[in-house]
Nucleic acid binder design. Structure first.
Lengths: 178, 178
DNA sequence: ATTGTAGGCCAACACCTGTTGACTTCCTAC
DNA sequence: GTAGGAAGTCAACAGGTGTTGGCCTACAAT
């Protein structure tokens, strides 16, 4: 079959996202990604040059945090994060690989420093303690993703979105305001 | 050099723990572990049979949760977990590998189901909601480990044990009692 | 109809992995 | 002092990895 350059590149990228999200950096082999994309492994190299560069492209990600009313920020953040996780594979990619791959960990750090921290400053007007607050929020929210989507603790998997929001939003709210 | 069988086995196991904790399952190669133990890779196979069995031995782990007064359980749990993490590589091994290795994830699940949940039942006397409570606690506590020790968010790394306990214990306490 | 080019495929490379079996060396029990 | 066995070494295997270069093949412009 014959495709345009842009098309194949997109197909490869989509396959790479899935594989990296499901298997992590090492287990997601170029050959497996190529097979998913129904393409020769050499094409992956032609379009992305290197496995690391392909990963960098697949890990491109924006939290897209919305503006929030300060008194509902806790619930808003938890809800947004849950939906983002399920809609965008980028976060899964970063969490699965960030644990054993320093480059992905660094990316995670810059995302939280560049996107979560500013929001916290904006919400609290307290730049001095914003870093701690933001990391505490990150710790709870990433712990949620870890236990629900990665380690799959049964009670976390069984819980509904609303139940999780009810449990977690007071925590996040307290990390913001206390 | 000539050692007893038990000695070498212990040396190998110690090296394996370190490597698995630092690198995760795939990157921790038998050759690297053997080099750390100043031993031929074949010895590792002789003593443990298989990489998977070696991993199983290295991931042997007990949370050793202490008895706690119900009203101070939050602080007690956070403190115990922080110290356990730094004293025993077993937890690091499990978290680093559990993210990409199903066997390690299963081990993590049974540890939390078999050790955290009973404690929660004991503390609350409420068997029905104990699973949710226990997983919520696990989510916060694992999120702490993830952001402080694995992803190394700077504010979490900089925080002292007491600061972290002060921030997290109300969260854990609420997951226990609310 | 011919040619240039871009998309795609194949086979191979050098390297690394877990794992195996044969070989050597040392200590101990008789 | 010699036999047996345990501790340790070495070289190789089969399979998988990222990556490369040469080769086709379809299409568009001339």
């Amino acid at each position: 079959m014959r495709r345009s350059s842009a098309e194949t590149k997109a197909v490869i990228l989509a396959a790479a996202r899935e594989r990296f999200a499901a298997d992590g950096y090492d287990k997601a082999t170029i050959r497996a990604i190529a097979a998913d994309a129904r393409i020769d492994p050499a094409m992956v190299m032609r379009y992305f040059g290197t496995k690391e560069k392909l990963f960098a492209a697949a890990a491109e990600f924006d939290l897209e945090l919305p503006a929030l009313a300060p008194d509902q920020a806790g619930a808003g953040l938890v809800r947004h994060f849950l939906r983002k996780w399920e809609a965008d594979e980028g976060l899964q990619v970063l969490l699965r690989t960030g644990v054993t791959n320093e480059a992905a960990a660094e990316r995670m750090r810059t995302i939280f420093a560049g996107q979560v921290m500013p929001l916290v400053i904006d919400l609290t007007g307290d730049p001095e303690r914003a870093p701690v607050r933001a990391s505490l929020i990150a710790s709870q929210v990433l712990g949620l993703a870890l236990s629900r989507y990665i380690l799959k603790f049964p009670p976390m998997v069984a819980a509904t979105e609303e139940e999780l929001i009810a449990w977690l939003s007071p925590t996040v709210q307290r990390y913001l305001t206390e």
